[in-house]
Computed example of a mutant assay.
Amino acid sequence: MLNETVVTLQGWVGGDVSLRQAGEAQVASFRLGSTPRRFSRRSGEWVDGETQWFTVNAWRGLAENVAASVHRGDPVVVHGRMNASTWVSNTGVEVISLEVDATFVGHDLARGTSVFTKTPRTAPPRAEGEPESSTTAAA
């Protein structure tokens, strides 16, 4: 698609990951808090800015991997398409909600270590009587 806003965010998982069914696909969602940090020349110290909150949605296979791997408090890096939606709260206040449809999600290894487990690939179903090929056996 043209003119999509693609972003890479670094932050901390602010709550539990929820996994739900959306039609034929699974989607995992979590809140990501990102706090900018800048050096203040005036005080000579690092100063935290205002935390920005994003809802991250991961779909299909990524959803399952995120639900199994990402937990509240984890430092993560997220890459995906940014969407902004405007709605009116119960109190009548207009709210802008920022959501990211994630393409990639991973632990921020600048903040710690992680262990990777490769997801096994499933072979496409074979026709009855079809011999197993060497490429299917290797997968």
Score class of each variant (00 low, 15 high):
D101A: 12
D74G: 03
R111N: 03
P131D: 14
G44L: 09
S85I: 12
S89N: 15
G106R: 06
K118P: 12
V88R: 15
A110D: 07
E94M: 14
F39I: 04
E50N: 04
K118L: 15
E94N: 14
S114P: 04
N65A: 10
V56L: 10
T91M: 13
S134Y: 09
W59I: 08
V95K: 09
L32I: 11
V70W: 00
V47P: 01
D48N: 14
T117W: 00
V47N: 07
A67M: 07
A123W: 01
L109I: 09
P75N: 07
V77Q: 01
D101Y: 02
V93C: 04
T136P: 05
W53L: 07
S69D: 04
P75D: 09
P36D: 08
V70N: 01
T113C: 10
P131M: 13
R121F: 11
G33R: 12
Q21N: 05
W59A: 02
L62P: 01
D74R: 06
T119H: 06
G80Y: 00
G73K: 06
A63S: 13
N65P: 03
F104T: 10
K118F: 12
E94F: 13
R81H: 03
G33D: 09
R81F: 00
R60F: 04
V105Q: 01
T122Y: 01
S34F: 01
T135Q: 12
F104E: 12
G112Q: 10
G44R: 10
T135L: 12
S89R: 07
E94D: 11
A102V: 07
S85Q: 08
D101E: 11
T113P: 03
E45H: 12
A102T: 04
L62V: 03
S40N: 03
E50Q: 11
T55Y: 01
A127N: 05
G80T: 05
A102F: 05
S34G: 09
A68Y: 02
F104D: 11
G15Q: 11
V88W: 14
P125N: 05
F116Q: 07
A22I: 10
E64W: 06
L32C: 07
N65Q: 12
E50T: 14
V56D: 02
G15N: 09
E99K: 10
H79F: 13
T86E: 15
V70Q: 01
T122I: 13
V100Y: 00
W87S: 11
V100L: 06
F39G: 02
W53H: 10
S85M: 10
E50M: 14
S89H: 13
G112F: 06
R72P: 00
P124R: 05
A28L: 13
T86R: 08
E24A: 10
S114C: 09
I96Y: 02
G15C: 14
G92F: 03
T35R: 06
N83R: 13
F116H: 08
A84C: 14
A84G: 11
D101R: 09
E99F: 07
V105F: 00
S89P: 11
L98W: 02
R111C: 13
T136Q: 05
V77K: 01
N83I: 11
E130D: 08
D108R: 05
V70G: 01
V76D: 00
A68I: 10
V78Q: 01
